[in-house]
Amino acid sequence: MSITADNPDGGSVAIAAAGIRKEYGDRAVLRGVDLTVGWGEVAVLFGANGAGKTTLLRILAGLTRADDGAVRLAGRPMHRRGNRARRLVGFAGHQTMLYNDLTCRENLAFYARLYGIRDAGQRIDDALAQLNLSDRANRRVRTLSHGMQKRLAMARAILHEPAVLLLDEPESGLDAASVATLGELLREWAASGRAALLTTHSVEVGLAWAHRALTLDGGRLTGDVPGYPSTGSG
């Protein structure tokens, strides 16, 4: 991995968030969240519906602006003009961010151009292979099943080889085999020294994949169980 070369100063912490607050009208969704995720760590975020998991992830990805607080990814500030920080993030959310009338390869090629990836053809092949989509490369997204679209969204998120992966309920809607593929991907991810933060409603999946479990309740992090060995099974 090119993390250290790319990023000489942010070696110790992958994600650092401090004092994150977010209000939506009458409701305070996040009320001061402090969070760090280290390199080589996969952390899972548990919380009830509406606890603010998605909002927190979107703030970390730079998609939503926090009312207060700061986010740093590998030591780089994430803000409106934070292009350098954005390059380090791979994000897969509830929506696939794909275009229905383009093929799998065309969708990835578009994002490869946006990220300025050199040797894009090879990277696209690799990402498709990693998510078991090689045989669908030239099919239009519209014709794919929901699960396949979701896997393609995953391929999109890792296409530019980000250092930090943010996944919002990655396992929902996937069949057992795809969940296993994803688990394998995350284990390699951590083994290569990169970092990931994911949310899930499945305690089983979360504990199997992650090294560390966090719980979000009432707009604050209420639990942090670090250092248990990930079984990494899938």
Binding site: R81, F91, M97, N100, Y115
Partner: peptide
């Protein structure tokens, strides 16, 4: 509207290109 169908707008905003 096309950018909103599958959240493509988020994809554009995530990318390391300026607004």
């Amino acid at each position: 509207t096309r950018e909103l169908e599958q959240g493509g707008l988020d994809g554009l905003l995530l990318a390391p290109v300026s607004r």
